[in-house]
């Protein structure tokens, strides 16, 4: 072997040239080490892949359980929302009927009017906590459509009242009198 700088004859195993001091590139042992480490690394990667596949197969089952439980939760909130919405007119009617029998129930007759807002709040909660839930999305759309329809009907009633009756809107309680006109 010769030195790459001065061409002086170098013995095998020498790290420096005895003539000029140039470092001898000992490629062969390093190359062998690199190749060996590559070979060692490849099986490790294969093992890692195997471990990964095992891990994914093992954890899929808890993920499935989580998906199923989240669907059950959002269905629960949506059903509670629907129950609150339906309960409002039923309870209002019930307490109004009972109020005719006893004055105590007249106080309770007004409280169920909060229930549609509770229903809407529950639907919003379900939509935010479970964004993928189609049930919550559809329920929200239905509530918004019902609200908009209610506003449109109220505006039509106000306009009809103003044109035909001419005196159903008076003072600061105008809005309240419209609503009391609509709902008795």
């Amino acid at each position: 072997m010769k030195c790459s700088k001065c061409g002086y004859e170098i013995n095998e195993g020498d790290k420096f040239c005895r003539e000029c001091g140039q470092v001898v590139e000992s490629t062969t042992p390093e190359k062998e080490v690199k190749e060996k480490t590559k070979k060692v690394e490849e099986p490790k990667e294969e093992v890692k892949e195997e471990v990964k596949t095992e891990v994914t197969t093992v954890t899929n089952k808890p993920e499935e359980k989580r998906i199923v439980s989240s669907m059950a939760n959002d269905t629960f909130f949506c059903l509670c929302s629907i129950i609150c919405y339906i309960a409002c007119p039923l309870l209002t009617g019930l307490f109004a009927y009972l109020a005719t029998k006893s004055d105590v129930f007249s106080l309770f007759a007004r409280i169920p009017m909060i229930l549609p807002f509770v229903a809407y709040a529950l639907a919003i909660y379900a939509k935010v906590k479970y964004p993928e839930s189609k049930f919550a999305k559809i329920l929200l759309i239905i509530y918004i459509v019902l609200f908009v329809l209610g506003i449109i009907l109220m505006i039509i009633a106000v306009i009809a009242c103003a044109i035909f009756l001419r005196d159903c809107l008076e003072g600061c309680q105008g809005l309240g009198s419209i609503i009391s006109l609509l709902f008795g």
């Binding site: 007004r110 409280i111 009017m113 909060i114 807002f117 809407y120 309680q173 809005l175 309240g176």
Partner: peptide, 18 residues
Amino acid sequence: FGLLGSLIVCYIIDKNMG
């Protein structure tokens, strides 16, 4: 909530929708 909610709460407290 702002519009109808306040109307309903007024009605519950005051029996007068305003």
